[in-house]
Design a binder for these strands. Structure first.
Lengths: 158, 158
DNA sequence: GGTGAAAAGCTTCGTGT
DNA sequence: ACACGAAGCTTTTCACC
């Protein structure tokens, strides 16, 4: 991760539109930001090369795939040694159900997981068959997502 | 949200590739899944129309935008009435710093927020200036993200 | 589901302002 | 730095097997 790039109003406008629609064409992008195709293309290229863009992804609807249960799980570890953490991190990264794993501050947990599963049975299987078997895991506090009020992928562009 | 769609091996393959790269062309997609362009295009169209695809987005790197602090915030409300919740939901949806807001089960919180800010000063400002001013908010438990071990956007395709 | 051709759309030059 | 216009290419989408 490098340093910040200077972004003028048009750059931010471009990034905003791209955040909303990864498949927007340069032509439409240009039109929307009030530029002609050439300079718009140059700006996009510059933005891509700057490393500010992570990737372009397609988001699917979990429920339509039969993934009807999302859980947030707080994990506590017995010891906070690098070995424990490294091992845990490697293991957790291989589990398809784990969408997110964060190391967090706070007294109640060391890791915070976001997990997507089909149903409660699948969750039980994940919990007992995978998570609680990992070395060093002493506490697992499950919390289930009832509803998503806000679910953004677009970062705020000052 | 409707019912599930039947997905064969090729459909899953297509969705997998699209999840990884929203800008993949039909031509490359076809090649990668072992189809010719036409039937591949037909499948993609069918998938789009099925509603299984939410949207195509561009992900930016927060740090490159100067957003160096991510917080997970547990919120508790005084009363769990629809009025309280509705009001909170409408308010929270307008805050650019809020990337995610979930209603969750569990004794420790009613809402779980994911917030992205520039720094601790910005966070303090967000907390005191916005969050704690919302009606009905009795508890705010901040937890900061030290590192992201896993950060996926691609759902597991059975 | 495959093939081939037509059609459309996009990007990228060169040139000029 | 940007606009314009043309060239050239890629992609999509037909009709048909």
């Amino acid at each position: 991760m490098q340093e910040l790039i200077k972004l003028d109003r048009i750059d931010k406008n471009i990034l905003q539109l791209m955040q909303d629609n990864a498949r927007i064409t340069n032509l439409e992008l240009a039109e929307r930001v009030g530029l002609s195709a050439t300079p718009c293309s140059r700006r996009v290229k510059r933005l891509e090369e700057s490393g500010i863009i992570d990737k372009h992804v397609t988001l699917l609807k979990p429920a339509m795939l039969g993934l009807k249960l999302t859980a947030m799980i707080g994990i506590t570890m017995d010891r906070h040694t690098p070995e424990r953490f490294d091992n845990f991190e490697r293991s957790i990264a291989t589990l398809p159900e784990v969408m997110e794993c964060l190391i967090v501050t706070g007294q109640s947990a060391d890791f915070l997981l976001k997990v997507v599963v089909r149903d409660m049975q699948h969750y039980e299987q994940f919990l007992l068959g995978q998570l609680t078997r990992l070395e060093g895991v002493t506490g697992v506090h499950s919390s289930f997502v009832l509803r998503e009020i806000v679910k953004k992928s677009a970062l705020p562009l000052g």
